[in-house]
């Protein structure tokens, strides 16, 4: 029990540091795409500490307090339910106690809490962003769930550990080669999940200035930042486990998550933003029809 607790705390802290570092790397790379020098790699840590130590004298109700916690809980929940390194007895954390369905639920949980809190803040932009976000979520959850269903039907299991072990023994056993269309669909839904550019209608700078966190200040915002960093890392590890053969060692984990993290970074600076209805229409038709190919192949 103590060992589990220690591993849970260490995993969360490690994911936080890794997520913030990845954020720093992404800021530097975006800056060099713009032809700028860009911030320090540790800028996100400085921002986090500053936000944590600022005065926070404003709140708008109970849900307003809880929303950053929901976000953090959603992130840590996904992180703990996914085996980080396959076969490592410590870093599998609590993946014995839940399967993919629970993970899907937790991914929804953080966003839902955020929506409730933003609604409690009462800012009109926050409410607009929440309605957009829930609409978009209903659009991409469809194809992502279908992609997960393809894996479950094809491999005959919902357990992430079994899905990882089914992919061992050669690169051609990875799900990205077994189910290429489902993987493509899941990778498209990875963009709106990370709120990167063609699909960032929720945060939408210059449009509804920053969306849900408009009223969130200092300490609330620092929790939200760390929740987002942890959630980002958890999603990366989940995708590596589901489609890219899992991670057998530290080095393969770092390489795979880093490469997967780079992918939205090179999509986002070259695309403008979709409008809400365009985004929803795209997400309902393109990834869904991609995943339907694999779904039919698995069923027949």
């Amino acid at each position: 029990m103590t060992r589990l607790l220690v591993s849970v705390i260490l995993t969360s802290l490690g994911a936080l540091v890794y997520g913030l570092l990845l954020g720093g790397v992404s800021r530097v790379i975006t800056a060099s795409i713009h032809g700028r020098i860009g911030p320090r790699l540790t800028q996100n840590f400085i921002d986090l500490w500053k936000l944590f130590r600022k005065e926070s004298s404003i709140h708008h109700g109970t849900m307003f307090w809880m929303a950053p916690m929901f976000r953090l809980t959603g992130g840590i929940g996904v992180l703990l339910l996914v085996p980080i390194i396959a076969g490592n007895s410590v870093l599998t954390n609590m993946s014995f106690s839940g399967d993919l369905l629970l993970v899907l639920y937790f991914m929804f949980f953080g966003c839902l809490g955020m929506a409730l809190g933003a609604g409690d803040s009462g800012h009109p932009y926050a409410v607009v962003a929440v309605s957009r976000g829930l609409l978009q979520m209903s659009a991409y959850e469809l194809s992502f769930s279908a992609a997960v269903l393809v894996l479950a039907l094809g491999l005959g299991t919902f357990s992430i550990e079994n899905i990882v072990s089914a992919q061992q023994g050669g690169i051609l056993n990875w799900n990205v080669f077994r189910f290429p269309f489902a993987t493509a669909a899941a990778l498209i839904t990875f963009l709106p999940m990370n709120m990167t550019y063609p699909f960032n209608i929720v945060l939408a700078p210059q449009e509804i200035p920053i969306g849900p966190p408009t009223e969130y200040s200092s300490r609330f915002l620092s929790f939200m930042f760390s929740g987002r960093a942890i959630f980002g890392v958890a999603k990366l590890i989940l995708f590596v486990n589901l489609f890219f053969g899992g991670a057998g060692s530290w080095s393969s984990l770092l390489i795979k998550t880093f490469l997967l993290y780079m992918y939205p970074l090179f999509v986002s600076p070259v695309f403008p933003r979709f409008r809400t209805e365009q985004s929803v229409r795209f997400l309902w038709f393109v990834p869904t029809s991609l995943v339907a190919v694999d779904l039919l192949r698995v069923i027949l």
Partner: peptide, 12 residues
């Protein structure tokens, strides 16, 4: 590069 960024809301 100095860590200066724009925020759209006074709260942040």
């Amino acid at each position: 590069r100095f860590g200066i960024a724009m925020r759209p809301t006074p709260r942040q």
